[in-house]
Design a protein around this nucleic acid. Structure first.
Length: 252
DNA sequence: CGGCGTGTTCAGAA
DNA sequence: CTTCTGAACACGCC
């Protein structure tokens, strides 16, 4: 699930069901909090009210009148407002009117407790600017790296929030091969890349998740799948360490 | 049993 | 210092 658009959806769910409410208690899987005990999280949050959460890249920052919980969703994280318990509920925030669940099957990512703004900064300081906050000029700085194009876009320290699917979709829309070297893109190609990224992020954030339509590359992530634009069988290979799909006819 | 995966980090090499 | 590769993490589904 979780790339920038998914975490934006989680942010809205958290805001709708948790912000402005007093935490009664917190329980969960003790191993999911990476820098504190579950007890410390419970003591830090209980009795305090959540502010509207902030998203930076794929991180969700949930402040509660001083302390904060930072959530990262790995590959299988989710935020749910449900009554149903599930074995993969790793953190449960209990309110008077219900429970908000941080569910995460594979337990990549996790939760971090921050006592104050300085600790939040310490935990998120390695991130580049959020992809939705990068202006056209900022994109040129990101693309100045002499590494592979896909690797540069995936690196959270350069630009925060893009993931395997978002990058493949962006490159497909921009008609650029993931194997290009970032710093060698021409201005017209950087223009196309920036517009494609904006389009993908804005459209998918409107949904609050990554859609799987036939007209999108995300709907064609299987061996032998064809380019939704020209019908050519998509190339499938490992690029920047990740399974990558692209059209060798459309994307140069 | 083996392979795969929407993420990240780390060791080691070039 | 920059870049790249491979392994590791945890767990369910082919």
């Amino acid at each position: 699930m979780p790339e920038l658009p998914d975490v934006e959806g989680f942010r809205r769910t958290f805001e709708r069901h948790a912000s402005g409410k007093r935490v009664r208690s917190v329980r969960g899987d003790p191993t999911i909090v990476r820098n504190a005990s579950l007890n410390e999280v419970d003591r830090a949050l209980s009795g305090r009210s959540f502010a509207p959460p902030q998203r930076i890249g794929k991180w969700l920052i949930c402040r509660a009148e001083g302390p904060a919980v930072l959530l990262h969703f790995g590959m299988t994280g989710d935020i749910l407002w449900l009554t149903d318990e599930h074995p993969h509920d790793r953190l449960v925030f209990v309110f008077d009117d219900g429970e908000l669940r941080y569910r995460n099957m594979r337990k990549f990512g996790g939760a971090w407790l921050a006592a104050d703004e300085a600790e939040i900064e310490h935990l998120t300081g390695h991130l580049g600017p959020d992809a939705l906050d990068v202006a056209r000029r900022g994109m040129d700085e990101v693309l100045a790296h002499r590494a592979g194009l896909k690797a540069v876009l995936m690196e959270q320290r350069n630009i925060a929030g893009l993931g395997n699917l978002t990058v493949d979709e962006t490159l497909w829309r921009a008609r650029l091969s993931p194997t290009r070297t970032a710093s060698e893109l021409q201005k017209a190609e950087r223009d196309r890349l920036y517009r494609a990224m904006r389009h993908v992020l804005v459209a998918w954030c409107r949904e609050g998740f990554i859609p799987a339509s036939r007209s999108l590359l995300t709907g064609a992530r299987s061996r032998g799948a064809r380019c939704p634009r020209c019908g050519t069988t998509l190339k499938r290979a490992t690029v920047a360490g990740r399974t990558t799909y692209w059209c060798r006819r459309c994307q140069r």
